[in-house]
Structures are given as C-alpha cells and as structure tokens.
C-alpha cells in the first residue's frame, strides 16, 4: 500500500484563540482509503482537513507545528497551486465555492487556472460532469439549482482538477436526506472508480459509515478514536464524545449487550432485519408449540 498522507504531531492555533484547534495530531492513510471524520462542532475536523489541502500552513495565519506529508512530499514544500491539482476540497455550503454563474464555467475554472490548452479543459469538464452525472445541468445557472445539485457541481469542479485525495467538510449538511444519501453514494462510487483517497467530515454516520474503512473521532483538537466503524461503534466512546450513533446501530449494540451477536454491525433497518432473520411465520409456529423447531432455533443461537 502506498501512503496517501501522513500528519506527524501536528498542532495549530488560530490567532488570538485561547486553545489550539489541533494538538499533536498524528494520522496516516493509504491510497484508496475512505476515512470518516466525526466529532462535535469545533473539535478540529475542519482544521485537520485544512492541514491536508495546504490552506494551513500556506495561507492561514496562526501557530503551526509538526509535519504534513501528502503523497510522499512535505506539504510546506509543495506550492498551493500544485497542491490544488492533487487535493480536492468540497465545503459544507456549496455557495462558498461556486465561482461562476454557469455550471460548465464553474467546473472549468480550476483547469483554466492550471493553464491547460482549451481542448484539455473541455475534456476534463466533460469527464467531470459525466462522473458526477450532471451533464444535463451543463448550461444551467448555478443559482437556480437545488442545494443537492449545487453540491454536485462543487464536486465536479473538484474532480476536474483530477485530485488523488478528496477532502469533504460536512458536504451534506445543507442537503435533504435523499440528496445527502445520493451524494455520499456518488462519492463512494467515485472513490472506487478513480482510486481516490477520501476524508469525509460528517455528522450523519448512518449514511457515511457504510462506505468507510475507518472512523476517526476527534475531541478538543485531538484524535481519540481511530478504528474500523464496527469496532469504533462497539467501543462505547462515541456517545461520551457527543457523537450520535445511528439509531439502528444503537439498537444492535443494545441487543449485543443482551447476548445477541452480530458480525458486521448493522447500520440500516434493511441490514438488521436481513441479518436477524426475525421471521414472524417461524415465530407463530413456535407459539403453536413446534418444540423441535424451537430447539433447533435455540441451538443455532
């Protein structure tokens, strides 16, 4: 496995802030990994993402310490315009990053600033619109799109830069549940297709965790949990960190505490029902006194 990025003992304090936003944070990911970053608002998720795309230390003022490497190079040695071609960023609110009035101009903005020839720009715009599935929006005004569509334009604009690392800072917070699910599914598909490394800061764990290799939870500028999702959910620390468990996972954990066993922890109702074989017909027969069946059922349990 090739290393995508590594933070070594990274600390950062914003000007005039009483406490550091990050305190001796170390985190590494291999190429192709999908990390979900969780934690209460203000715990340092956004600051960590800003360290990975070079906004910190290149453009932000504040006290920075530690070392950040992206694809094997120290980030302070790579100029921001070069980083922009390797690290894509999608913000919480699409309005914060849409620069043009028409969709295709917005998607073309990045490649244009790389100084690419027009045909190369066109090829990248076409590919990015196709990847995200918004070719039909190409000539639309970004202002008349829904929040979900705007967020897809922001994603396409990031992809047009052909990044290898994609950072998303609560990208679904302005979207309704159906659009949020749609968006995260799209990110997961792109990650598989384009071998992207993804770091996604997200509150909606029920929607994000099915795609995650690791759940990294932060509190007060530090990483306090870094495990595969099922391990992190079972670890019992997320609740005390103020991180809401998906309701179905909470139920599955409650059942585990009472002796039931799940291998992979279910996150959705479909998974739970599928896994638990809670078959009413079977149960009715049990009630009618089908002892043999009951014994077998117990045996399996």
């Amino acid at each position: 496995m090739t290393r995508a990025f590594a933070l070594h003992d990274v600390s950062f304090r914003y000007p005039r802030a009483a406490r550091p936003a990050l305190e001796r944070v170390s985190l590494a990911a291999d190429v192709g990994e999908f990390i979900v970053l969780a934690g209460r608002s203000g715990c340092g998720k956004s600051t960590l993402l800003r360290c990975l795309n070079g906004l910190i230390p290149h453009l932000a003022t504040g006290e920075f310490a530690g070392r950040v490497e992206v694809f094997g190079r120290a980030i302070d040695e790579v100029p921001p315009h070069r980083l922009a071609g390797e690290v894509g960023f999608v913000f919480q609110n699409p309005e914060d990053q849409l620069v043009a009035t028409v969709v295709e101009s917005d998607v073309a903005f990045g490649p244009e600033n790389l100084g690419l020839p027009p045909e190369a720009i066109r090829a990248r715009v076409d590919a990015a619109l196709r990847q995200v599935g918004i070719e039909v929006l190409r000539e639309r005004s970004v202002h008349e799109l829904s929040a979900g569509q705007q967020q897809k334009v922001a994603l396409a604009a990031s992809l047009a830069m052909r990044p290898a690392l994609l950072l998303l800072d609560e990208p679904t917070s302005q979207l309704d549940p159906a659009s949020a699910e749609d968006f995260l599914h799209l990110v997961a598909r792109l990650r598989a297709e384009a071998q992207l490394t993804v770091v996604l800061a997200e509150h909606r764990l029920d929607l994000a965790l099915p795609y995650a290799d690791r759940l990294v939870a932060m509190a007060d500028g530090q990483i306090v949990v870094d495990d595969p999702p099922a391990v992190a959910l079972r670890g019992g620390r997320l609740g005390e960190l103020g991180i809401g468990l998906p309701p179905v996972a909470a139920l599955a954990l409650a059942l585990e505490r009472r002796g039931w066993q799940f291998g992979r922890l279910p996150l959705s109702v479909d998974e739970l029902v599928g896994r638990a074989r809670m078959d009413g017909a079977t149960r009715r027969r049990e009630r009618e006194g089908d002892g043999a069946r009951r014994d077998r059922a117990r045996g399996e349990a």
Binding site: L255, R275, A276, M278, R283, R294, A297, R298, E300, A301
Partner: peptide, 11 residues
C-alpha cells in the same frame, strides 16, 4: 426483542 423474540441471529 429479547423477551418476545427467541430467534437466532444468523450471520
């Protein structure tokens, strides 16, 4: 679920 539903959890 525990008290009413004695069915096994299958993997």
């Amino acid at each position: 679920l525990i008290s009413d539903c004695r069915l096994p959890i299958a993997e």
